[in-house]
């Protein structure tokens, strides 16, 4: 194929500028002096200092914990409690939103990866009556609009709360909701990994006398592990990025970063929100580059 022509360069260049303009403007305006947003008035790093202040105080508090003493006396539980108390102590709204986002993403990803992997494996290996219908139904969370899923969950939680007194809206309901939409994504990735595997490998294991469990644990699982990790990473990112489902299934006291950004932006864009967004953008850039580098197949240079 030919090299790109000049008009193609021009159009594509413009499209890249178009895609990156919002990201760049958020970064630039995070250094703006004007406290209530608006036009550019001058350069400052004040907003980043404010954001990172809790990190400084956490670092200084963590420094004074007597790790050696605790470990020597085998008081690991006390040590763990002390550290988690320092980390989870409420400091400001942005810091607690970040902590909540992290708890939500980790808890939902761990459970959804386990459930989704089992589903992906089960659907690709075993038969049951109604399997075709159920494997289609499992993909509904992938294809329906977020908002429909969100209001369905909201009305379900409200109904259960009225009848049984369970599911007060908050972190738990949000984690359950995230797991529900993460499961099919993990299952899709795991299934496509299993579909690309040579069945002869497992047949050989059985022929050589391995039991079903041994075959799974020593042959199948190590081969499907990259798919499981890729699914987990996808689930983690989906959870971090989600706004709509969290917005409808959360309660007072469990604000996440996207919800915080949304409600702040509704009141007006301020440089401290831009600074927070910049840090989030930075994290996604690092994440994307990291995954791209990890996925790159090892091959000799120049190829």
């Amino acid at each position: 194929m030919r090299r790109p022509s000049f008009p193609l360069w021009l159009v594509s260049g413009f499209l890249y500028v178009f895609m990156y303009a919002p990201i760049v403007v958020v970064i630039v305006f995070s250094f703006n002096v004007a406290k209530h947003g608006g036009p550019w008035t001058g350069f400052t790093t004040e907003w980043y200092q404010q954001l990172l202040r809790p990190a400084y105080s956490i670092a200084s508090e963590l420094k004074v914990v007597e790790y050696r003493e605790h470990i020597k006396q085998l008081e690991l539980r006390t040590l763990f409690n002390k550290i988690s108390e320092i980390l989870l102590q409420p400091r400001n709204d942005k810091w607690s939103a970040a902590i909540n986002t992290g708890i939500l993403a980790f808890a939902s990803t761990i459970l959804a990866t386990a459930l989704g992997t089992m589903l992906g494996y089960g659907l690709s290996r075993y038969w049951f009556p109604g399997k075709k219908l159920f494997s289609l139904l499992m993909y509904i969370p992938v294809v329906i609009p977020d908002i429909v899923m969100a209001v369905a969950m909201l009305s379900f939680y409200a109904m259960v709360r009225d009848w049984l007194g369970l599911f007060e809206l908050g972190m738990t309901t949000m984690i359950i909701a995230h797991i529900t939409f993460q499961i099919p994504f993990v299952a899709i990735v795991v299934r496509s990994r299993l579909a690309g595997m040579d069945p002869a490998i497992e047949e050989a294991a059985h022929d050589l006398g391995a039991s079903s469990w041994q075959t799974f644990w020593h042959v199948t699982f190590p081969l499907m592990l990259p798919g499981v990790l890729a699914g987990a990473m996808l689930a983690f990112t989906l959870s971090l990025d989600d706004f709509v489902v969290s917005f409808f299934t959360t309660g007072p006291g469990a604000t996440t970063l996207p919800i915080l950004i949304y409600s702040s932006v509704k009141r007006g864009i301020t440089p401290d929100i831009n600074a927070l967004s910049t840090l989030i953008v930075l994290a996604s850039v690092i994440g994307t580059l990291g995954v791209t580098l990890l996925q790159r197949p090892a091959k000799p240079s120049g190829g």
Partner: peptide, 16 residues
Amino acid sequence: SALTSGPSILWVTVFL
């Protein structure tokens, strides 16, 4: 199937 797909099918059915 019940041991592998079962929990997820139950989860998605109940919660979605």
